[in-house]
Amino acid sequence: MKVELSGVSVRIGSTPIVADCDLTVKDGERVGLVGPNGSGKTSLLRTIYRALDPFAGRVALSGDDVTTLGQREVARRAALVAQDSTPDFDFTVEEIVAMGRGPWLRTFESATGRGDAPITAALERVRLADHRRRRLSTLSGGERQRALVARALAQESPLLLLDEPTNHLDVYAALELLELVRDLGRATLCVLHDLNLAATYCDRIYVLHRGRIVADGPPAEVLNPELVETVFGVACTHLTHPATGGLLLAFSPRQTAPVTALGEGTKR
């Protein structure tokens, strides 16, 4: 599976959201998409699974323009874990995961109750096989997110799209989830806010700023102090992680206010 975005621009109504974006994800590659709030990350992701059609440019999955593909065929090629995508109804874990089989089922055919192998395999992969009969509402936040990843795995699509998958998760659950995604070996495009998580778990990173891609490449090259200060408005220092030897980013305010006493502007 290869994803290619060429000159993609997106508008919502008459409002430009992203402009002239080029992006690729190769088979088995983990690619991060980072940028400040409102930079267009989710909108760009949505063009890949046809929730939005590009105003200009082309989105291709394995060489095929997505606008020529039906929604079922797009879902067979790309599985999504969206932000805040917990269903409104309190299904069991197994029922949630079974929803991922939808693109492969005939009309009115049900995936549950038939011992469907992809469902069982997905539950085992995320270590929720023992929870398959539990209601989603009874799970922890990390377990619920793993159930949604299992739904995407059951979809058996070669491309995985993740939109802020660590949102609302504690540190352990976030690391556990991204370790799982890394071990899958699938082509993955992941929207992340945490730059240290992006640097640790992504092979390449694209940076969106004001609706345009301003950098792409390996994390250590892309997340350089100059770019981080320009795009995110914070000072950044490159460190070496003492345990992994990988890149570790340390942040501080770009401009430190002078130290004053009682707001009078004098030094303490």
Score class of each variant (00 low, 15 high):
1 M>D: 00
3 V>E: 07
5 L>G: 04
7 G>C: 05
8 V>L: 07
13 G>M: 04
15 T>N: 10
16 P>Q: 08
20 D>W: 00
20 D>F: 03
24 T>R: 12
25 V>K: 00
28 G>H: 02
31 V>W: 03
34 V>P: 12
35 G>V: 00
37 N>V: 00
41 K>H: 05
41 K>P: 02
42 T>F: 01
43 S>M: 03
48 I>K: 01
48 I>L: 09
48 I>C: 07
51 A>V: 12
53 D>W: 10
54 P>W: 09
55 F>H: 15
57 G>C: 05
60 A>R: 14
62 S>T: 09
66 V>W: 00
67 T>M: 15
68 T>K: 09
73 E>Y: 00
76 R>L: 06
76 R>A: 07
77 R>T: 01
78 A>E: 10
79 A>V: 06
81 V>N: 13
83 Q>M: 02
83 Q>R: 14
87 P>H: 03
92 T>K: 01
96 I>G: 11
96 I>Q: 02
99 M>H: 02
102 G>N: 14
102 G>S: 15
104 W>K: 10
113 G>P: 01
114 R>Q: 03
116 D>F: 04
119 I>V: 07
122 A>L: 05
129 A>E: 03
135 R>E: 13
135 R>N: 13
136 L>M: 14
136 L>C: 08
138 T>M: 10
143 E>S: 06
145 Q>M: 03
154 A>L: 08
163 D>M: 10
165 P>Q: 04
170 D>R: 14
174 A>W: 13
175 L>S: 15
177 L>Y: 15
180 L>G: 12
182 R>M: 06
185 G>D: 09
187 A>Q: 13
187 A>L: 13
188 T>R: 13
192 L>G: 08
193 H>W: 04
195 L>T: 09
195 L>F: 15
195 L>V: 11
197 L>V: 10
200 T>V: 14
200 T>K: 15
201 Y>T: 01
202 C>E: 07
203 D>M: 08
210 R>N: 12
211 G>K: 05
215 A>L: 07
217 G>I: 11
222 V>G: 01
223 L>D: 06
224 N>R: 05
227 L>I: 05
229 E>K: 02
229 E>D: 12
232 F>R: 07
233 G>T: 01
234 V>H: 12
235 A>G: 14
237 T>G: 13
238 H>A: 06
238 H>M: 05
242 P>Y: 04
245 G>S: 05
247 L>N: 10
250 A>Y: 14
251 F>Y: 10
253 P>F: 14
254 R>I: 08
254 R>P: 15
260 T>C: 11
263 G>A: 12
263 G>M: 07
265 G>C: 13
